[in-house]
Design a binder for these strands. Structure first.
Length: 271
DNA sequence: CTCCAGGGTTTGC
DNA sequence: GCAAACCATGGA
């Protein structure tokens, strides 16, 4: 099916923006996954994309996933960035804040601490295999990310073999909590930002940064700004310690993502 | 081999 | 309240 997208949309930049760890580039196609759904996207032109699903699935799953109900172009035009952010926004044009599955996002970012992005990808992929729930597509067979209930029956040894290291107790604790209360993460969607942040931080292994990642990349809380080592470096080196992101209000998280993508593309220069 | 990674918890003051 | 030590492992 061909879809026409006139707003910002660049699958390559989304894939390289560090939000999702199971998306892949396969030749000219980009693969994204959520729940039991997989999509392959190939650009036909600047605004036309060949997508591997039908209209119903596109509407129900992928428009929300890519946050296509929001107009990022108008957000870019509405803001008034300074020199550094202007450059970052320009470089990151096409990125979207994904609305990913909360459980997968939570576990992914608990694991992300003190790991490089390639290492995180390897871990999450190994973890997905533990669930043994395969999805057969036109191009390949992939594994759905296992639910908390499925992971509850997995042995410690298997978790360690995924390379989780000292994070195994964190993951096991989350598995125990959310396999017992299956609706909890869904219920938290009704909380305001402050309450959601404090609930997420009650989970062992979840601090300020990971909680903000879950809020931004799963709950669509675009005012939230995860401050990792790279964003912290920007605040120190480019802004003299004055965090510029809260100044962008409800769009602060989107600006953060442009900035994060920008430094990933310029890592060598950032000493 | 060495260094470091989208941090968080625990401990000591 | 704050700083420092400590945490397992893969990728470069």
């Amino acid at each position: 099916m061909i879809v026409t997208l006139t707003d910002d949309f660049d699958p390559n930049k989304i894939l390289n923006s560090g939000q999702c760890f199971r998306c892949r580039q396969i030749g000219e196609m980009y693969r994204f996954m959520t729940g039991n759904h997989v999509i392959y996207i190939r650009a036909e032109s600047a605004t036309k994309y060949d997508v591997s699903c039908g209209p119903a699935e596109w509407e129900k799953i992928w428009i929300p996933y890519f946050d296509l109900g929001k107009n990022y172009r108008s957000i870019r035009h509405a803001i008034n960035p300074d020199g550094f952010m202007k450059e970052a926004v320009s470089a990151g044009k096409g990125i979207r804040i994904l609305r990913q599955d909360a459980w997968e996002t939570l576990i992914s970012f608990i694991i992300s601490q003190r790991k490089s992005i390639p290492a995180i990808r390897t871990c999450i992929e190994a973890l997905a295999r533990l669930g043994r729930e395969t999805i057969h597509t036109e191009y390949e067979t992939v594994y759905a990310f296992p639910t908390a209930s499925v992971l509850a029956d997995i042995s410690d040894r298997c978790f360690y073999d995924c390379g989780l290291g000292y994070r195994v107790p964190y993951v096991k604790n989350a598995v125990a909590t959310f396999s017992r209360n299956k609706m909890l993460l869904q219920d938290w969607a009704n909380l305001d930002d402050m309450s959601l942040l404090s609930m997420l931080k009650t989970i062992h292994g979840v601090g300020d940064k990971v909680a903000n990642c879950v809020m931004l990349f799963a709950y669509g809380r675009t005012a939230c700004v995860p401050i990792d080592t790279w964003i912290a470096r920007i605040i120190t080196e480019k802004y003299g310690g004055q965090n510029p992101f809260p100044g962008y209000g409800a769009n602060a998280g989107i600006m953060q993502q442009y900035a994060f993508y920008y430094i990933q593309q310029h890592r060598a220069e950032m000493t």
